[in-house]
Design a protein around this nucleic acid. Structure first.
Lengths: 203, 203
DNA sequence: GATTTGATGTGACAATTGTCATATTCGCCT
DNA sequence: AGGCGAATATGACAATTGTCACATCAAATC
């Protein structure tokens, strides 16, 4: 198993190198910014590239972009601190193979092995962050005392239709649609159709 | 490393057991449905539980729910085929530690190690499925000819405020707010504030 | 058969919303 | 100084929206 490491924090970089080498992992090179990481990758073609996110000159994300452009099958593992989980999605869309906490020293080695084997690895809290971003369990309208027909009206409001259009779509008079909406707003404690649409899209 | 396996396909189950044992992993027990998985878990308290998703009597997901209720720190790894990636989110929200393809025999062992170490593991294609579900890159309003102030108005509309409230929040007259919104609707080719709120939440 | 219930519709009303034409003000440019 | 273009405001207007009280009617219940 051969890897490269890029982190602008010298202490982290050296500790990592030492620990991983003690696990029998070959560290082909280390760098302090994204630019160096790209150069190291092109020179050594490691199994996995361990990149810090925040680095001077060129960030880990930018470096990952360059590396993947150069070698689309590159396996990139991002190192992160508690604080910067805001790049998870970006890293993910970019095609990174993982996103793990750099303070979890011992668990980095197994992560590397898994990544080399083709899996993707995410640190403990990372996944929960991720799952909170995903559309998530929609609360059931039926639970909230909303009838099937009312739910249909809601769906149409949430698509941006006005009352007349909803009426045509459901074969109801515009007045009836208004009554439905009025009732729904009351039940959900909302003020107007805009809040209803928002509620629907974020429940 | 001690684990249990539950899969209703006898061939998969036995092959897995054999292979993993050859890696020095101790397989404490195997079952053919969710019910058995739960029982095995309560009996052996393995480091990791390997569960198939689709199983008779009780699915892997249901079993995971019971196991996690019994032991919230349980580490559960789902096995899946290409076909059923539709449960990823559910598994994720449930607190599973991974979701991997059962045909990737050799990569299951490293995955187990990583999971035991506290990481979460996802199979190759799984992650790309996931990233396509995440809200994704919000298109920049500035690109669409929207000014900073206009964007602020949009944000407030998208929170369900009415014109008067937006005016108070931004120290503008209600009329000015209306004008802003009118301009925004024109630029984005929308009809009313509800469509605007929807656009904002789904762009 | 009478009653109740639920779904649907109507009309009236006030409030909110979107549009537009037209100020006012202020800073910036030459 | 004059002029230009933003940001802000106003007033008028029509359309849409939300509320409410009250019909209608059919199906279900008693």
């Amino acid at each position: 198993m051969k890897i490269i490491i890029a982190d602008d924090d010298q202490i982290v970089k050296l500790s990592l190198k030492t620990i991983l080498e003690s696990f029998g992992i070959e560290v082909l090179g280390t760098g302090s910014n994204g630019r160096e990481a790209v150069d190291l990758y092109k020179e050594h073609h490691p199994d996995v590239a361990l990149l810090d996110i925040r680095m001077p000159v060129m960030t880990g994300l930018e470096a990952a972009g360059e590396i993947l452009k150069y070698d689309p099958s590159a396996k990139i593992l991002f190192l992160t601190t508690f604080s910067d989980d805001e790049y998870i999605i970006e890293a993910l869309n970019m095609g990174a193979k993982g996103y793990i906490l750099k303070q979890d020293f011992e668990s980095i080695s197994p992560a590397l092995t898994a990544v080399k084997a083709g899996q993707s690895v995410f640190g403990r809290d990372i996944v929960s962050k991720l799952s909170s971003l995903v559309p998530g369990e929609k609360t059931d309208y039926r639970t909230l005392g909303i009838s099937e027909k009312e739910e249909e009206v809601i769906a149409l409001v949430a698509q941006g239709l006005n009352n007349k259009e909803i009426g045509q779509a459901m074969f109801l008079s515009e007045g009836t649609v208004r009554n439905y909406i009025s009732g729904v707003l009351e039940k959900l404690q909302l003020r107007d159709r805009t809040q209803l649409a928002i509620f629907h899209h974020t429940r």
